[in-house]
Nucleic acid binder design. Structure first.
Lengths: 221, 221
DNA sequence: CCCAGCTTTACACGAGCTTTACAGGTTCTG
DNA sequence: CAGAACCTGTAAAGCTCGTGTAAAGCTGGG
């Protein structure tokens, strides 16, 4: 359902957290280098960052995430337990904080809480539209809605954050990946395709609004 | 009917459980080493894992199974009975839990329950299609349907989990075994063969749907 | 040695993706 | 206020890649 990015240079931690989170139904991406993790933040729904990392520390990564991906929740892992560090981490913009050694179950619980806080669920319900992120099946007015992979990801990204404006660049990072070389107009074309399948009119949309000069937004309420 | 994988390093336990489960009509595979059991999970309908194992503990195996084979039910055996261990096991993704010493009949009953839960039966009925997994005989509209071994296993695998998408890789692991060296296109060819025998049209299938980019799925409802 | 069944190979087709082009409409600018 | 510059919607064309399927080659059991 949600995509979790774990950045830690300890393979054992990556493995155990991956196992628990996958069991929870999430898809997990791992990285052991702070610098390499940077462009991968764009595709995550939540990030678990170790404090000490090669390349770039977790705190620096957190600050970057806060700046570039304001809605991305960050959970910091650290070996230190002093109150001062905790404050530094939260100050850098971390949303939660777990001290090593930790219980995997606690981490899973906190990830669950973070995802709930930003409204990430495995099931989207918006009026007559329904999306099951696990089986990747969508319905409109109870009828199955055939969406291609790209269309599904695009609509799910927007629908998961109603009211939030997504720029074309952000959507491309998120749906196409950070390294996609194409032009941003491809977003428009797919938006048009999704709108047509939703029966949505660009001038008076029920679902996907155009925010001129900024991007697109899924309608709130 | 169903394939049960038992992993335990105590030959006596393997023997008694095998006897009871074979009497129940299952085919049983045994393994005494955790690491060696790993690739064999792919072909099982249900796994019975001992907590303490050489090579890899049952809990680690369970976590792996949960990650790689989400629909595979796991029954953990353990000598310890403390509540904490029970929780650890269930948290790692075990579906049930039996404390040694146990009654073989209890294990058989729980295996039966697990198989029922994931919809594994000795008889598949899907509209005009009927498959008897014990006698490996299939009928369509009441007429006997001649399927080769591969075709039967392939169709049975899909039909046992309606609505679930199987990737070509998963199907190969499951039907051909984890060590099969061939290319995944062999799956397509056999799907085509099964479809022809079922009178199924690839563009408007009654039984086997293609999920573009992902794999195949047996139709629900 | 024969043959059923399995695997590989090759090719055609089409779904889906990207690019491009153009037609509105909006905002900017002098 | 008029024209330029820009943004967006959308159709259409071209391309890529996944899939369906026939056919040929292979293999092991009877």
């Amino acid at each position: 359902m949600a995509t979790v990015l774990i950045v830690d240079d300890d393979p054992a931690i990556l493995e155990v957290l991956t196992a628990y989170l996958v069991a929870e139904g999430h898809s997990v991406e791992t990285e052991d280098d702070g610098l390499a993790a940077l462009p991968r933040l764009a595709r995550a729904d939540v990030a678990i960052l170790d404090w000490m990392l090669p390349g770039m520390t977790g705190v620096e990564l957190t600050a970057h995430a806060r700046r570039e991906h304001p809605q991305l929740p960050v959970l910091l892992l650290t070996a230190r337990g002093e109150e001062e560090d905790r404050l530094r981490g939260l100050n850098a913009g971390a949303d939660d904080y777990v001290v090593k050694p930790f219980s995997p179950r606690e981490v899973v619980a906190r990830v669950r809480a973070l995802l709930r806080r930003v409204g990430v669920q495995d099931h989207i319900q918006a009026g007559p539209l329904t999306m099951n992120l696990r089986s990747r099946a969508a319905t409109l007015h109870g009828q199955p809605l055939a969406l291609s992979r790209t269309e599904f990801d695009l609509l799910a990204t927007l629908a998961q954050h109603p009211g939030l404006v997504w720029s074309r660049e952000r959507l491309m990072e998120r749906v196409w990946g950070p390294d996609f070389p194409g032009v941003t107009r491809v977003v428009d074309v797919h938006i048009t395709a999704v709108r047509r399948k939703l029966g949505d009119d660009a001038d008076a949309p029920t679902f996907i609004e155009t925010v001129r000069g900024l991007g697109y937004r899924f309608r709130e309420d």
